[in-house]
Simulated assay, not measured.
Amino acid sequence: MSRNWFITGTSSGFGRIMTECLLERGDTVFATLRKPDMLHDLQAGSQGRLYLAALDVTDTDMVRQVVDQAFAVLGRIDVIVSNAGYGLFGAAEEVSDAQIRQQLDTNILGSITVVRAALPHLRAQGGGRILQLSSMGGQIAFPGLGLYHASKWAIEGFFESLIQEVASFGIEATLIEPGAARTQFGRGSVVMAEPLDAYQTVPFSARRSVLAQDSYTPVGDPEKMVREMIASVDVSPAPLRLALGSDAYRLIHEALTERLEQLEAQKAIALSTDASP
């Protein structure tokens, strides 16, 4: 069965790969990106199944207009894919105020705005599926990526609540948690803060040069990951989370296990702080 998809951040990485995969299998895609001409090569062979629109997810009014336009053009949209986002590397002292605002505006507020704009349409049509690109970084944290992690942990909390709010309308959602993948995101495209001398000799600083180099090769295959994202739409009830990549599985498993052990160690303290009957 063919579906209609709305996808943000389609110029490269997961967004472009997903667009290619969906067109190959006969689906229709309303693809958004800052510069639509970057997908003109795909549109030429799409047989009229690829629609393009310029979109900056940090522009709230623009997001609402483009989402409304997409539903007007396609009539029904089966899957909303909130994919636009990027990484910022730098210690808390190193990142600038402007970099912090841009990171949070894009990864948190941009994603929330896209979903909020789509919800009235999804309710009106009786349901739909949302795929929100998070990261293994939504459940774990590395030094030097604090603001990126803040954005992903925040969007995961938002969706934990949202999914419960919209379930009765037939709307389901999945948080996609890829590990490091061989996309531009993981190979030299992370925004780097201006380093401070004080942080040049700390252990995590070595990651700075690794992330900045095109020679860095993550383990994740982005096309295999995208195909699992697409396949997840056929699963009902929708999985709350979808971890992709051996590194994602290993690191998330370690983090959750350690977190649970720490919670169990504090059980007596937690119970002792209840008010007396």
Rank of each mutant, 00 (worst) to 15 (best):
A180S: 09
M62E: 13
P120L: 07
F71A: 05
P239R: 01
I163G: 13
A180E: 12
I17D: 03
G146K: 01
P277G: 14
E94R: 00
F6L: 11
H149I: 13
I108L: 15
L131Y: 08
E165M: 01
A91Q: 04
W153R: 07
A206H: 09
A54H: 01
V191L: 03
Q125P: 02
E165Q: 03
Q125D: 09
T257F: 12
H149W: 12
A167D: 03
V63G: 10
Q164G: 14
A150Q: 07
R250V: 08
G188P: 00
C21S: 14
Q102K: 12
R64H: 14
G170D: 12
V115F: 07
E261T: 15
P120I: 04
P218W: 10
Q262G: 11
I269D: 07
G186F: 04
Y249M: 15
A180N: 04
M229C: 04
T10Y: 04
I108G: 09
E93F: 02
A54E: 03
S111A: 15
A275R: 15
L22M: 05
G179D: 05
V57R: 07
I269A: 08
Q164A: 15
A53Q: 04
S46W: 00
G137F: 03
V210G: 06
S46I: 01
V235D: 10
I155Q: 14
D221F: 06
M18Y: 02
M38I: 10
A212G: 06
A173I: 09
G179L: 06
V115G: 06
A150V: 08
I252F: 09
S11W: 08
I176V: 13
